[in-house]
Computed example of a mutant assay.
Amino acid sequence: MHVIIIGCGKVGSRFANVLSEEGHDVVIIDSDSNSFKLLSPDFNGITLTGVPIDQDVLKKAGINTADALAAVTPDDNINIMVCQVAKEIFKVPKVIARIYDPSREHVFHHFGLETICPTDISVNVIKSIIIGKKEVQTQTIGNKAILYRQERVDKSYIGKKVEDIELDESSHLFAVIRDNEFNFAKPGFVLKKGDEIVIASKGD
């Protein structure tokens, strides 16, 4: 894949290194050339110094043929502008932005942009640990973050069919893990002692 990364901070540089190790064509852009010092000596991609919202800079990065773009600068405004340009003008197939302010996530979704918010993810993971849940994973689908958590089946659920398990309106029993085997929670599947259930719920 040809991937453009905007921002060479801790996240951007790490992401670039991982993609480079896997053999992808990576171009990383940052306004400060010193940021590229965070890249691995084995990084095989291209570094570009310049303003990431400048279309000429993006063209030098090969945005016309890019398969994906990830904007991970510390500035939400830059991330949203770059993603808009990539999506609307250059028609990049996959565009994702990291945002710091959860209250602004709706702005990105309004423009049809996928986002990842470390603040929300951290809060949800910490909350899951405090209240005894575990293994929380987040996936953005459409304009909503979906949280997946895995937990030991409650004693009151044993012997019940999955369709008889009552959860809150924002949650859905997605799967059952039995003897380390993954099973979709299809109607008629009866829960047993030792099962673990995977619950999907909408993020805040």
Rank of each mutant, 00 (worst) to 15 (best):
I121K: 06
K60L: 14
P74M: 14
R98H: 11
C83L: 02
G132K: 01
A66I: 02
C83Y: 02
L69P: 01
V82Q: 00
I99R: 09
I121W: 07
K127I: 04
V107A: 04
V82M: 02
K133L: 08
G112A: 03
N79D: 10
T73K: 05
K59V: 15
K87D: 04
K59D: 12
T73Y: 03
I78T: 15
T73F: 07
L69I: 15
L113V: 05
V92G: 05
Y100L: 10
L113D: 05
I131C: 01
A70P: 02
N77L: 13
A70M: 15
T73S: 08
A61L: 07
N77G: 15
S122P: 01
R98M: 14
A70T: 13
R98D: 06
I129K: 10
K87A: 09
D120E: 15
I121F: 12
V85N: 01
H110K: 12
V72L: 14
I63P: 05
V92P: 06
R104P: 03
K94W: 06
N79A: 12
E114A: 13
G132A: 07
A97K: 03
K134N: 10
A61R: 04
F90I: 11
E88C: 04
D75N: 09
K94F: 10
K127R: 09
G62D: 04
S122I: 14
H106S: 13
E105H: 03
G62K: 04
I121R: 05
A66F: 07
A66M: 08
S128F: 01
T115M: 05
V107T: 10
A61M: 09
L113P: 02
L69N: 03
H109R: 13
H106E: 08
T115D: 04
K127M: 11
V107M: 09
P118D: 06
N79K: 14
D76P: 09
N77H: 06
G132I: 09
I96A: 10
E88H: 13
E88P: 03
T73R: 08
V85C: 04
I63T: 11
S103R: 02
Y100F: 10
V82S: 00
D101K: 10
A68N: 08
A97P: 04
I126N: 02
D75I: 13
A86W: 05
N79W: 14
G62C: 07
V85M: 12
K94V: 11
K91I: 04
K134C: 03
N79G: 09
A66T: 01
G62E: 05
K133T: 00
A61G: 05
K91N: 12
L113N: 02
H110A: 09
A68I: 09
F90C: 13
K127G: 08
T73L: 10
G112C: 02
S128L: 00
S128N: 12
A68Y: 08
I78R: 08
D67M: 06
G112R: 00
K133Y: 06
V95C: 08
V95R: 00
G112E: 05
A70C: 11
A68T: 09
I116Y: 08
C117P: 07
I99Y: 03
C117N: 15
L69G: 02
I96K: 13
